[in-house]
C-alpha cells in the first residue's frame, strides 16, 4: 500500500518534471506566463484609475495575477490533453499502468507552480508601472491562500481535463470558457456588480474563492481568510472526487469509441 502510494508520488514528480522541461522549450507558453499578466495588469489598473477608483489598484493587480494563474491551469487541462492526443502519446499514457489522472495531477501542478510567476509579474507591473502601494495586511494568510488557490484551481483543471479527453476541440472550449469564468469569478470586476442569479454559479468556481481569500488576506475585503481557505480545501476535495468519477467514465468511453487518436 505504502509502496504503491510512493510509486504514484514518483509518477506525479516525473510528470511534474516532464511538463516543466517541455514547457521551458515552448515560447508561446513562456509568453503567456510573462507577457499576458503585464497586459492584463496595465488594462485593469488603468480602467480603475480612469474611472476615478485608484484605490482599487491592489484589487486589480491580484485579479490580473489570478487571470495569469487560471490561464496556466486551462493550458494544463486543455492544451496538455490536446497536445498528447495530437502527439500520439495519449494512448500510450492511457495504456500505462498508472491512472491517467495521476499523470495529469503532476503536469497540472507543474504548470500551477510555474504560474506563480504570473502573480509576481502583476505585482512587479503594479509597483513599477503604476507605483501602487501594494501593502498586504496579512502576508502569511496571503501566501497560504495563494497556495490553496493553486490546489483548488488545479483540481478544477482536472475536472475540465476529463472533458478535454473526450473532446477534440479543447482549444476552442478554452477560448469560449475563459472570459465568462474571469467575470463570474470577479477577476475583472467586483462580484457586487453581478446580478443575483449569477452568484450561485460564481460560488462553484475556485478562482472566485481564491480571489476572495487573497482580497481578504490583503485587507481589501472584510472577513476571515482562514474560513475562506477552509472553503477552498472543501471545494478542492469536491473537485477531486468529481474528477475521479469522471475519469473512470471518460476512460471507458474513449476505449469504447476508439477516440484516443482522433483529432
Amino acid at each position: 500500500m505504502i509502496s504503491h502510494f510512493l510509486g504514484l508520488l514518483r509518477v506525479v514528480a516525473a510528470s511534474f518534471n516532464m511538463q516543466a522541461k517541455e514547457r521551458a522549450t515552448n515560447q508561446l507558453f513562456v509568453g503567456t506566463l510573462l507577457i499576458l499578466p503585464v497586459i492584463f495588469t496595465i488594462l485593469s489598473v488603468s480602467t480603475y484609475i480612469y474611472g476615478g477608483k485608484a484605490d482599487f489598484g491592489l484589487y486589480a493587480v491580484i485579479g490580473a495575477g489570478m487571470v495569469g494563474i487560471w490561464n496556466a491551469n486551462l493550458w494544463t487541462s486543455g492544451r496538455i490533453v490536446e497536445g498528447e492526443r495530437r502527439g500520439g502519446t495519449l494512448s500510450a499514457l492511457i495504456a500505462a499502468p498508472t491512472p491517467f489522472p495521476v499523470v495529469l495531477v503532476g503536469k497540472s501542478l507543474s504548470n500551477a507552480v510555474v504560474s506563480l510567476i504570473s502573480m509576481a509579474m502583476t505585482f512587479a507591473t503594479g509597483l513599477i508601472v503604476f507605483r501602487l502601494p501594494l501593502d498586504i495586511e496579512n502576508p502569511f494568510a496571503f501566501i497560504i491562500s495563494l497556495l490553496l488557490t493553486l490546489v483548488a484551481m488545479t483540481s478544477l483543471g482536472l475536472v475540465l481535463g476529463s472533458f478535454f479527453v473526450l473532446t477534440r476541440n479543447a482549444g476552442a472550449f478554452i477560448e469560449v470558457a475563459n472570459y465568462p469564468i474571469f467575470i463570474l469569478s470577479g477577476l475583472m470586476f467586483p462580484l457586487t456588480i453581478l446580478p443575483f442569479w449569477l452568484k450561485p454559479l460564481s460560488a462553484a468556481l475556485a478562482p472566485m474563492w481564491g480571489n476572495l481569500a487573497l482580497g481578504v488576506a490583503a485587507g481589501l475585503v472584510a472577513g476571515n481568510p482562514w474560513l475562506i481557505d477552509l472553503y477552498l480545501i472543501g471545494l478542492s476535495l469536491i473537485y477531486l472526487l468529481i474528477a475521479r468519477a469522471l475519469f473512470t467514465q471518460v476512460e471507458y468511453r474513449v476505449r469504447r469509441d476508439g477516440s484516443l487518436e482522433t483529432f
Binding site: 522541461k21 502527439g87 500520439g88 502519446t89 494512448s91 500510450a92
Partner: peptide, 11 residues
C-alpha cells in the same frame, strides 16, 4: 506503434 508520433519530440 509504427510512425513518428507517440514520442515527446522536445525531450
Amino acid at each position: 506503434y509504427g510512425g513518428e508520433r507517440g514520442l515527446y519530440w522536445r525531450l
